[in-house]
Amino acid sequence: MTATRSTPARPGSEHEAAGHPIPRRRPLSKAAIAGRVLRYAGLILLAAIYISPLVFMFLTSFKSGPDATSVPPTWIPDPWTTQAYETVFSATNTPVLRWFLNSMIAATLHAALVVVTAALAAYPLARMNFRGRSLILALVIGTLLVPPVILIVPSFLVVNELGWLNTLVAVIVPTAASAFGVFFLRQFFLSIPIELEEAAELDGANKWTTFTRVVLPLAKPALATLALLAFLTNWNDFLWPVYVLFSPDLQTLPAGLATLQSANAVRYDLLMAGAALASAPVLALFIFLQRYIIEGVARSGVKG
């Protein structure tokens, strides 16, 4: 990265040169302190408003049914209750924990499959000259323009032919041909100084060794980002699983919860509990991985 910022710049100096350490911090004037406090207050307020819908979702999930639809709306549950969660967990034919497990398995394997195949494909597209390269690149990027909805029925038929219906494989594999993933990783690979690979090859490494020993370790942020994005896409998909999984035991969590909610369309306490259950794992994963995402996107996709 051209701009590394190990030293703090002054807050709010967004147009200031990055990467240029301010020589020693001088004592701030009162006005500067007031300005800083004000800016912070503004930032915090904006962020609080921005995140408040999520907070409201989690709070509502601890309300009783009538409390959730009271007029005027209130923030704090009165009384606090885990009723909604109990209902979700105890409803007949809704093995929520099983769904959670299914979703975890499916999203994890899906993410792994996307990362492995996309990384393998992106490398030659970034670093090797061969006949057909631009054609493949054009095809892959071109399909980004095709509305995914038209793939549903033909893909269903393929999955059926393969005998994957009503197995988790059906939600892991078919959506794993990620054009975005290939494009994204290729851009990242292009940003890696080629000298490192050349050095490795001078030392006698073949393409595979170069790829696994030099390129992949350098690409960790991008791989983590793609893995997270793939995980999210798979976890959040609510259309495709309904087509291909029909045993209650095989549902994924969001699809399963959605069906549970269908019987309770106006029970906002239940709806919010379901939404909270579906969101909590991805939010946790995101918090855990978020610094990689910033770096991963920062160095790929948009930069050569």
Partner: peptide, 27 residues
């Protein structure tokens, strides 16, 4: 700009992106 807590703010603005459209829509 670099300021204390920047990562937290960034995370907050990115957070809704991790939700599914089903959750976003019902919320």
């Amino acid at each position: 700009a670099n300021f204390p807590g920047r990562n937290l703010f960034r995370a907050i603005y990115f957070a809704p992106y991790v939700l599914g459209v089903a959750v976003v829509a019902v919320l």
